[in-house]
């Protein structure tokens, strides 16, 4: 498993949450509401490119809409490798949290 940054992990998670409608603007919006801070489009786009390159996500061109000037969306979808990686990250952090809570429990 290739290493992911925190940002990439969050984006991957967002794509998974958005399911079928994960394109750049939607991802950015979702992240903004979850994190509470808005990122710029390019700063989201760069990790997306990297994730795609590493094979965690795949993309295809969707439909256009008038609000986009008729331009098509690039819709991202999570791959099997992506799922595995997310689960792996989740497991790691749960393990770590468990250790934390048992420790605090003992202390209290």
């Amino acid at each position: 498993m290739k290493g992911l940054t925190r940002k990439e992990e969050l984006i991957l998670l967002t794509i998974r949450a958005l399911d079928r409608d994960a394109y750049l603007v939607a991802i950015t919006d979702h992240l903004a509401s979850a994190v509470g801070e808005r990122m710029t489009l390019p700063s989201v786009h760069v990790p997306l490119t990297r994730l795609e390159k590493m094979g965690y996500i795949a993309s295809e061109l969707g439909e256009g809409s008038p609000v986009r000037g008729g331009r098509r969306k690039k819709i991202y979808r999570i791959t099997k490798a992506g799922y595995r990686a997310l689960n792996e990250y989740k497991r790691i952090s749960e393990n770590l949290w468990e250790a934390v809570s048992s420790q605090t429990g003992r202390k209290d």
């Binding site: 394109y23 750049l24 603007v25 489009l41 256009g64 986009r68 331009r71 098509r72 969306k73 690039k74």
Partner: peptide, 16 residues
């Protein structure tokens, strides 16, 4: 390669 969707994303945000 990604020109079309990207410009589209920018425009969507712009109009919103």
């Amino acid at each position: 390669l990604e020109q079309e969707p990207l410009i589209g994303d920018f425009q969507e945000t712009f109009s919103r």
